[in-house]
């Protein structure tokens, strides 16, 4: 059984991120493909311009600790990557009913990004091969990010 811990809950700057961390904590199995010690940032942006300039409105990180996940406010010290999400995307993601619906919507924000309706993106902080070895390839597939029309 995987578990989730949300640390320093009152330290998150925005309500939307508080809601998102609560939402993610329901589904620690989303992160089960990642090896223990994997850590990455979730950064929330209010516009593409703020993404370009690297100015998120809020940021938290998720550590896969082998038993589940630990969610903490702020940037991780040595994050593997940053998952960037628009506010619009997060607002809709937290309303999804189950893990499958969440993955489908997350995938659609990656595959059909739209400045107004929502988007996600990611920035790698480590080399692709290292991240693949850590399980991020399987994680991305499970999250609906890495797929094509003919793999469905």
């Amino acid at each position: 059984m995987k578990s989730s811990t949300i640390n320093e809950y009152n330290e998150y700057k925005t309500e939307i991120v508080k809601k998102y961390t609560l939402f993610l904590s329901q589904y620690p199995e989303i992160f089960s493909d990642l090896i223990s010690g994997s850590i990455f940032d979730f950064a929330i942006y209010d516009s593409l311009d703020s993404y370009d300039s690297g100015s998120p409105i809020d940021i938290f990180n998720v550590l896969s600790n082998g038993n589940g996940i630990e969610i903490k406010p702020g940037k991780a010290m040595d994050a593997d990557l940053e998952l960037a999400l628009s506010v619009e995307a997060v607002e809709k993601l937290i309303k999804t009913k189950d893990r499958e619906e969440y993955a489908r919507l997350l995938g659609s924000y990656f595959n059909e990004p739209d400045e107004e309706n929502g988007w996600i993106d990611f920035m790698l902080h480590k080399r692709t091969q290292i991240l693949l070895d850590m399980g991020y390839g399987r994680f991305a597939q499970a999250a609906g990010i890495l797929e094509d029309e003919y793999s469905k």
Binding site: L48, F110, N111, E112, P113, E115, W119, D121, M123
Partner: peptide, 9 residues
């Protein structure tokens, strides 16, 4: 590649 995704349509 990231920039291009926003021009996908």
């Amino acid at each position: 590649a990231s920039k291009m995704r926003f021009k996908k349509k």
